[in-house]
Simulated scan of single mutants.
Amino acid sequence: MHPLIDPEGLAAMLASGDPPTVLDVRWRMSGPPGAESYAEGHIPGAVFVDLDTALAGRPGAGGRHPLPDPERLQRTLRSAGVRSGHPVVAYDDADGSVAARAWWLLRWAGHRAVAVLDGGYAAWSAGNRPVTTTVPEPVPTGIKVTPGRMPVLDTDGAARCAREGVLLDARAPERYAGEHEPVDPRAGHIPGAVNAPFADHTGADGRWRSPAELAERFAELGVTGDAPVGAYCGSGVTACSVVLALELAGAGEWPALYAGSWSQWCRDPLREVITGTQPG
């Protein structure tokens, strides 16, 4: 399944006799809660899945949004109606990065038939397509989660990737440079990491950039296919959009996600922190 689907394609799938499972994963760091937006209106048949409680584990030593426990994720997917081999479409109402987390996590869990709605809820609503406040009651499934189907970096692996390959930092430039840090206890970036803001993956209309544009962007950042590539962000969520963008760009092998990301790295006093606009 292609990692992106446009609203027209989703509408056609929903009108078919065997529609996909649709996951509403709207979330905002500073609120309001995505569940409130879901209650006000969502794509017909969509099931709300919360990032903090379902698509991530408990905050702690592993970061603010560590990977969820596989058994817990399996219960979530089963209750949401996700079936083995059956298409899943995830959407948010921002830049696609939270939907990309759902996409990545399903891939990591062994479910490959998953796509992100290009343009998200805004693109769906802009076409005067139907929305509803009705909450569906999915039939529970028996899907099995098989973790580890996407590469993951630990802290040592992230440091090694920055030295020997290309480690992409998906945060905004001011957070990368250490000029502004609204969440984590230390500001800056991992030594050797290259800034690749996730906001640059989409255009002003919220749609993902073309494969050619993305390929050019990553080439400028040093992604040539000759060295390992990893990605991180603040807590391991928006970095998933880097992985998706690299897939769209035809980068080849899957880049590895540093799931703990900056929220894990910066809490270790033995880990060096770099400030400024250069990788260091």
Rank of each mutant, 00 (worst) to 15 (best):
V183C: 01
S16R: 10
H180N: 15
L153V: 14
R267W: 07
E71V: 14
K144F: 10
A162Y: 02
H111C: 14
E40S: 01
G203N: 12
R75E: 10
G234M: 11
I190G: 08
V237F: 05
G157S: 09
A193H: 02
R186W: 13
P44C: 00
Q278K: 15
D154H: 13
P197E: 12
L77D: 03
W208D: 05
M150Y: 04
E253W: 14
E174W: 14
L244I: 15
V116G: 04
M29H: 07
D95R: 01
A12Y: 10
F218T: 00
A227L: 03
A122R: 07
L270F: 10
L246V: 11
W103G: 06
H189N: 05
I5Y: 02
T76F: 07
Y91H: 02
A109Q: 05
A204H: 14
L55P: 00
V25W: 02
P279R: 10
L248D: 04
P151L: 11
V273H: 06
D50M: 04
R58H: 12
L4P: 04
G63E: 05
S263V: 13
N195Q: 13
A177R: 12
G45N: 01
N195G: 13
P138G: 03
L246Q: 06
P211N: 09
Y232C: 04
P255H: 00
Y232K: 04
A177M: 11
L117Y: 00
L51P: 04
Y232F: 14
L10N: 05
W103M: 02
T224M: 06
R26I: 08
G85I: 02
T275K: 06
G63A: 11
V135I: 15
G110E: 08
W265G: 01
H86L: 02
T21C: 15
P255A: 00
H111V: 10
P136N: 00
T134Q: 12
W103H: 03
D169A: 11
A90S: 15
V49A: 00
A196E: 00
G236K: 03
P269M: 10
L14Y: 00
A11K: 06
D184R: 09
E216P: 08
R58A: 13
E174N: 11
T155P: 12
A239F: 07
H42C: 10
V139H: 12
S79L: 08
W262F: 09
D154R: 15
T275L: 09
E181T: 04
D6N: 12
W104H: 03
R271W: 07
G230A: 13
G148W: 10
R107Q: 07
T134L: 12
G142E: 11
A39S: 11
